[in-house]
Design a protein around this nucleic acid. Sequence first.
RNA 1: GGCCCAUUCGUCUAGUGGUUAGGACGCAUGGUUUUCAUCCAUGAAACAGGAGUUCGAUUCUCCUAUGGGCUGCCA
Length: 536
Amino acid sequence: MVLPLHLLNVFNPLYLKNVFLHSFKNKLIMSEKVRVRFAPSPTGPLHMGGVRTALYNYLFAKHNGGDFLIRIEDTDQTRYVPGAEQYILDSLKWVGLTADEGPENPGDCGPYRQSERKDFYKKYAQQLIDSGWGYYAFDTPEELDEVRNRAKEMKMPNWQYNSITRSAMKNSLTLSEDEVKQRLANGDPYVVRLKAPRNEELRLHDLIRGWVVVNTSNIDDKVLFKGDGMPTYHLANVVDDHAMRITHVIRGEEWLPSAPTHVLLYRALGWEDSMPSFAHLPLILKPDGNGKLSKRDGDRLGFPVFPLEWTDPESGEVSSGYRQKGYFPEAFINMLAFLGWNPGTEKELYTIDELIADFTLERVGKAGAKFDADKTKWFNQQYLRAKSNQELAELVKPYLDKKGYSASQSFLETFCGLQKERATFIEEMVDESFYFEAPKELDSDTVAKKWKPDTAAIIEQLKVILLNIADFNEDHIEMEFKKFLDSNGYGFGKVMPGFRLLVTGKGMGPSMSAICALIGKDEVISRIESGLKKLR
RNA sequence: GGCCCAUUCGUCUAGUGGUUAGGACGCAUGGUUUUCAUCCAUGAAACAGGAGUUCGAUUCUCCUAUGGGCUGCCA
C-alpha cells in the first residue's frame, strides 16, 4: 500500500494517525480471509459494467485466496423485474464467474437475497434510533415532493433532508415524544433516517483513490428504513456486509458519494473496527461523447451492452447480447478486464487464471474508460484464431445446420483452417457458401474486370490438366498449375482470377489449390464446365 | 447550484523529477500472398491550460478549464 505522503500532510497529526490506523487495520484484514461480494439489483438485465465489477471482485478474491459471494439486492419491490435475477445469475455463469456463496449455493451467511433477510434490518434500524444515530420521520412522499418543488421554484439549490432542514420537518426530533408514540401506535407510516452529524471532518480511504475527505454537513439524512418495512441500500449493504464478513467492498464509482454515509453507519452500529476496505471502480463510458455507458448506446451504436440477449417482459423489446452476437466469453472477459486495469506489461491476451494471477487493485486506473467496440472485436478475433480446427469444426456446425449444409469432420477441419484467418466470429466463417455448393452466380465485378476474351480457352486447357491429376491434393494441384503456367508462358494473373471465379464465384479468397483439394476433382471440373457455359 | 472524483496519441493505456514519452486497437503506406485475409515493416498521432516548488517538471503543489458521478421512502 503506497500512501500519497505529502510534505504538508506529514506534519498533520490527524493524517499520521489515519495512516497508522489504516495500515494497522490492513494488517488485521490481511490475517483474515478475503471475502468480497457482487451485489446486483435485479431491476433489469446486467449491464457490461456490472459484469466488470463482478469480474474485478472475483479476480481480487481469487488472487488473494478468498471468497466471492453474490448477494441479490432486491429491497425495492417497486422495481422488481421478473426474470432479471435469473438473467444476472446466467450471465455470470456464462462468463465463468462462479460464486463461492450465493442464492444458488448458500453458505453459512444466508439468505443471499435481501428480500429474504427483511427481519434482520429492522433490528438495526431500531438500534440506530436507540443510540441517537437515527430518528423517525413522518413526512409523506407527497410532502417531500412539495418541499422540493417549492425550493426549486424559489431557485434554491436542490433541497436535502439534512442537519439544517430536519428541524422544519415532521420527525421524532421536532415532534413531542407523546406525538411520536401516538403516531407509531396509530400505525402512521414512517421512515427511519440517519442523523448525520454536523460539521465534522470524515476521511475515508479508498484503495484506488487514496484519501477522500468530506465534511459531514454535506451528508444528508438518508432514509435507512423505508415505509414499506424494507431497508434502503445504505442500511442493507452495511448490515449485510458486516454479517457476511465482507473484507473489501469493490463497486462502481457511482457509490463514492454515498460511501461517507456508509462509514457513518459502520460507526453508528459500532462496527468501525471491522469495516471493510473500499475500492471504487472507474465507470465505463460511452464510446462517443461522454457519460456512462447505457442501454441506449448499444442500440444506437450497434454493439451489445449486455452479456446475454434480454427481452423486456413489459415491452417485449429485445436487447442484443454478447453471447448471441457470437463473442466468446473468454474474449469478453479479457476485454472487460483491460477496461480500467492493465498488468503494466505488454501482454494483452489473458486467460482467466492468468488474470487471477496478475490482478491487483493497485493497477486499476482512476479515470473512466470509453468503451471501444473495435477492440472488443479484435479480442474475439484473437481468441477465434487461437482455437484448433477441431474445436472450430464443432462450433461451426450449428451455423452450417442453419444454412442446410453438412460435411464430414475432416472436411470441416480443413475448411475452418482456411476460414479462420479471415473471420472475427464463428458465424462469419460460413459466409462463404462455395465450400458447400457450386456458386449460384458469378461476381459481376470480377467478370467485368478479369474475364477476358481468351480466358475461356485458357480455362479449357487448365481443365484438362486438372483432370489428369491422379492424386488430387493441394501440393499436386499447386505443382501442376505452376507447370501449366510455365509451359504456356502464362502469368498467374492471366489464369488464376478466371479459375477462381468459376470455382468460387468470387474474385478473392483462400488458396485455390487448397480449395480445389478440399471440394474434390469432380466438383471442380463440374463447376468449371457450368461456369464456362454461363459466360459463353 | 452543491458535494465528490477524474484529466498522457481518436480510443484503451505504460511510464519517470532529466526518456527519441513506450505498447495495443483503429488509421495510412510498403512488403509477403495469384487475390482477399493473415503476417511483417514503417508512418501519422498524446502529457488540458496557468502559476508555483526545483538546476530541471509530463511526473510534486495550487488554481483554472473540461469531463464525469451523486444530489429519491432507486440501487
